Amino acid sequence: EPREEEAEKYIKRANGDYDKAQELAKKDGNEEIAEAIKEYKKR
């Protein structure tokens, strides 16, 4: 799923820090991806 791939990219950029990844996504205006990262975190 493209959303998950995007989320993974942010998580990698944030060195595995989900909260930081979420912030990066929000900064880029990717609210949807920020949500996907939140879902990811719950797994």
Rank of each mutant, 00 (worst) to 15 (best):
E23N: 05
R3K: 12
Y10H: 00
N15V: 04
E32G: 09
E6T: 12
E35S: 08
D19M: 06
K9C: 14
D17T: 01
P2C: 15
K41M: 10
E5H: 10
E31M: 13
Y40W: 09
I11Y: 03
I11R: 02
L24G: 02
K26V: 11
D28C: 04
Y10N: 00
E1M: 13
A36M: 15
P2K: 14
P2S: 15
G29F: 05
N15M: 08
K26Y: 12
P2R: 14
N15W: 06
E35A: 11
A21G: 02
Y40F: 10
K20M: 12
E23L: 10
Y10F: 03
E6F: 06
E8K: 14
A7H: 04
E35K: 10
E8C: 15
E5D: 12
E39C: 11
K42G: 07
K38L: 13
G29S: 04
E6Q: 12
E8A: 10
K20V: 13
I37W: 00
E23V: 07
E1N: 15
R3S: 12
E32L: 12
E5W: 14
A34F: 05
G29Q: 05
L24P: 00
D28K: 02
D19H: 06
N30P: 00
K20A: 09
K9H: 10
G29M: 05
A34I: 13
Y10E: 00
E32D: 13
Y18T: 04
D28H: 04
A14F: 04
R3T: 13
I11T: 01
E35W: 08
E6H: 06
R43V: 08
A14E: 02
K42W: 08
A7D: 02
Y18V: 05
K12H: 09
D17V: 03
N15A: 07
K41P: 02
E8D: 06
K38W: 10
Q22Y: 15
K38P: 02
Y18M: 07
D19G: 06
N15P: 01
E31Y: 15
Q22I: 15
D28I: 02
K26N: 07
R43W: 10
K26H: 09
K41E: 05
E39W: 10
K38F: 09
A21H: 00
K27G: 08
I37E: 01
A21D: 00
K12L: 10
I37Q: 01
K38D: 06
E5M: 12
K38A: 13
E5V: 13
E8M: 15
P2E: 13
L24H: 04
R13G: 04
A21P: 01
P2V: 13
R43L: 11
K12G: 05
A14K: 00
P2M: 14
R43H: 08
N15H: 11
D17K: 02
E35I: 09
Y10K: 00
Y10T: 01
E6P: 06
K9P: 03
A25S: 02
Y18W: 07
E1I: 14
E6N: 07
D19C: 11
A21S: 01
Y40K: 05
E6S: 10
K12V: 08
E23D: 08
Q22R: 08
Y40L: 15
I11F: 04
E6M: 12
E6R: 06
R3D: 12
Q22T: 09
R13I: 09
G16A: 02
Y10S: 00
E5P: 08
K26Q: 10
G29D: 05
A34D: 02
E6K: 06
R13N: 06
E23I: 08
D19S: 06
K26L: 15
D17A: 03
E23H: 06
E4R: 11
E8N: 07
N15E: 07
A25M: 00
A7F: 11
R43P: 04
L24M: 13
A7Q: 04
N15F: 10
K42N: 12
I33P: 01
Y40Q: 05
A21I: 01
D17E: 03
K27T: 09
A34R: 04
E5I: 14
E8S: 06
L24V: 03
E4D: 14
R43G: 05
R3F: 15
D17F: 02
R43T: 07
E35C: 06
R13S: 06
K12N: 09
Y10A: 02
E39D: 08
A14R: 00
Y18H: 04
A36K: 12
K41H: 05
K26T: 10
D17G: 01
Y18S: 03
K26W: 11
E5N: 13
R3P: 11
R13P: 02
I33F: 03
K27M: 13
D28M: 04
E39L: 11
E1F: 15
A7S: 05
K41Q: 14
K41G: 06
Y18Q: 03
Y40H: 07
K27V: 08
N30M: 11
E23Q: 10
A34Y: 07
K20I: 12
K38N: 07
A14C: 14
I37K: 00
A36N: 05
D19V: 07
A34Q: 05
Q22G: 06
I33G: 03
K12D: 06
A36D: 05
A25C: 04
R43Q: 09
A14T: 05
N15R: 08
E31H: 14
K27F: 11
E23T: 07
I11V: 06
I33Q: 03
P2F: 14
R3C: 10
E35Y: 08
K41C: 06
Q22N: 04
G29I: 01
I37C: 00
Y10Q: 00
A25K: 01
Y40P: 00
E5K: 14
D19T: 08
D28G: 03
N30D: 05
A21R: 01
E8Q: 12
E4K: 10
R13M: 14
L24E: 07
A21E: 00
E1H: 14
G29C: 00
A14W: 01
Y40S: 04
K38H: 07
E32C: 07
D17W: 03
E31Q: 09
R3A: 12
E1G: 14
G29W: 02
E39Y: 08
A34L: 10
E6I: 10
I37R: 01
I37F: 02
P2N: 14
Q22H: 10
G29N: 06
